[in-house]
């Protein structure tokens, strides 16, 4: 990666990142911090040892309304307002619908969809009146087109896409923008797990890589670069959109090169 020039465009903004201790989450927290923001990594997972000490940590279960209320109360008490919210907490279940149990279905919807709803619902009052509010949800290119054996995941991401537009429509007049970033194949533990179910993994990885017009997988920093742009004032006219960042994968008819 080319080293990004840091502009400090989020100076003194309060940015809350759910799933902030995951691979992409940590990259976003690092970037927001480098841009001058006050960052809260909200995650059920514990604080990573390597996380910068200036970054705040709040243990947050996105499926619990009480936890969302507690997170909002913490942000209110410590910082008085919120300017940026990234709903990045998410899980993947690698199953068809016949293989998926009702408990699994409910769990992935609770985290990926209800989590986005609850955290947004309770942080919105802290964004109101700041005039620079920006919510960034995590959709997926899988919310547009399906990967095999990811039925419930695809459905949750489609739901996040529709919720993103609805929130943008409702809160735009108050100066709060809502967008979703839709990653393709990003080199994270989630992707490794997806490949882990397949036979000849190295050959498959190579073939999948070569289907990408850009001939590589995405990185957490690639995602953070776009989220950083959407979070700040340069994107002040961007709202209600689904921002696909997939190295060109979904620009083509499926797997013509395989």
């Amino acid at each position: 990666m080319t080293k990004s020039r840091i502009t400090g465009h989020l100076e003194n903004r309060v940015a809350v990142v759910t799933g902030g201790c995951g691979g992409i989450g940590q990259a976003m927290c690092r970037r927001f911090h480098a841009e001058g923001a006050i960052v809260v990594a909200a995650d059920l997972a514990p604080r990573p040892a390597a996380m910068h000490t200036d970054i705040h940590y709040f243990q947050h279960d996105v499926t619990s309304e009480q936890s969302a209320i507690d997170l909002a109360a913490f942000v209110q008490a410590e910082f008085g307002a919120a300017h940026v919210l990234v709903n990045a907490a998410g899980i993947e279940i690698e199953k068809t619908i016949e293989e998926t149990t009702l408990d699994e279905w409910n769990k992935i919807f609770a985290i990926n969809v209800t989590g986005t709803f609850l955290t947004s619902k309770h942080l919105l009052p802290l964004m109101r009146g700041t005039d620079v509010g920006s919510i960034i949800n995590f959709g997926s290119y899988d919310g547009f087109i399906a990967d095999p054996g990811l039925a419930a995941y695809c459905a949750t991401k489609g739901a996040v896409h529709a919720l993103t537009k609805a929130m943008a429509c409702d809160y735009g007049p108050e100066g709060i923008r809502v967008n979703a970033i839709c990653p393709g194949y990003v080199d994270t533990p989630m992707l490794q797990s997806f490949f882990g179910d397949s036979g000849d993994i190295e050959t498959l990885k190579q073939e999948v890589r070569n289907v990408h017009p850009i001939r590589r997988y995405g990185t957490a920093d690639d995602m953070a670069n776009l989220v950083n742009w959407l979070a700040g004032d340069e994107a002040r006219y961007a709202t209600g959109q689904l921002w696909v960042l997939d190295g060109g994968l979904s620009a083509q008819v499926q797997q013509m090169r395989l």
Partner: peptide, 21 residues
Amino acid sequence: SDESQFATGQLFTIDGGLTAA
């Protein structure tokens, strides 16, 4: 800029939310 090195083949809409509704 080099920040968008993974972005290709996409249509990015900037419309103030018009087509989201």
